[in-house]
């Protein structure tokens, strides 16, 4: 009889195999998204997060920086979720950004929850969060997907002296910051719940 470890290996290898065609077809353009996530709803305080260079287009609640290599970094330092969403979409990534109060989260309809087969890279940001220059994303890989950022509670606890954003994600149970790519059209609007 196969053990749990054997069964898990089989399923994970299938996941890897299914990813391969999408990866082979991806282009060279890449985007770097970093969330400094000082999204305290009460105040928009700029936070010193190292940028990767290039032309800075906006420097208020958010900034988008483009590099000569065609990469992007988004730094969120404020409260204007619509502006953040527009900034992301300018880089070629469809996005939905929701800032909620502490303890709130989105229930998505009509399915109630996002279906697992429609969720692509739930942890891509978490994995890269400790990097001051953000997470690397290739927009061509995410065509047909929507980047959903849901942020609730207070996320302003960035240590500006270190430029460290990883700790932002280590929050208490009443706060959440989720960053997922979800198949466009597979989810309904955010219904705020507690």
């Amino acid at each position: 009889m196969k053990t749990f470890e054997d069964e898990l290996l089989t399923e994970l290898k299938t996941v890897v195999a299914e990813r391969t065609p999408a990866i082979k077809s991806r282009g060279r353009r890449r985007m770097v998204v970093g969330l400094a996530a000082a999204v305290t709803l009460a105040a928009a305080t700029a936070i010193a997060v190292p940028l990767i260079g290039g032309e800075k287009t906006t420097a208020a609640a958010y900034s988008v920086t483009r590099t000569p290599e065609g990469t992007f970094q988004l730094t969120i330092t404020g409260e204007d979720s619509a502006a953040v969403q527009r900034a992301l979409e300018k880089t070629g990534v469809k996005a939905e950004v929701k800032y909620l109060k502490a303890g709130e989260f989105c229930r998505r309809t009509p399915a109630g929850q996002i279906s697992p087969q429609h969720l692509l890279t739930r942890y891509w940001f978490l994995m890269n969060a400790a990097k001051p220059d953000g997470a690397e994303v290739d927009p061509t890989r995410f065509r047909g997907w929507t980047l959903i950022i849901e942020s609730s509670g207070e996320h302003g606890r960035v240590d500006p002296t270190e430029g460290q954003i990883g700790m932002v994600l280590r929050l208490g149970t009443k706060n959440a910051l989720s960053v997922d790519f979800v198949k466009t059209g597979s989810f309904g609007p955010c219904v705020v719940s507690r």
Binding site: L8, E11, L12, V15, F105, G112, Q113, I114, P116, Q117, L119, R122, Y123, L126, M127, A129, L169, R170, L171, G172, T173, N175, A176, S178, D180
Partner: peptide, 20 residues
């Protein structure tokens, strides 16, 4: 990151979103 994320999220949500 995965474990600390799980601490924040409700278990039901974690399972609903899991691919495996």
């Amino acid at each position: 990151n995965v474990v600390s994320s799980e601490r924040r999220r409700q278990a039901r949500e974690l399972r609903a979103n899991q691919r495996i």
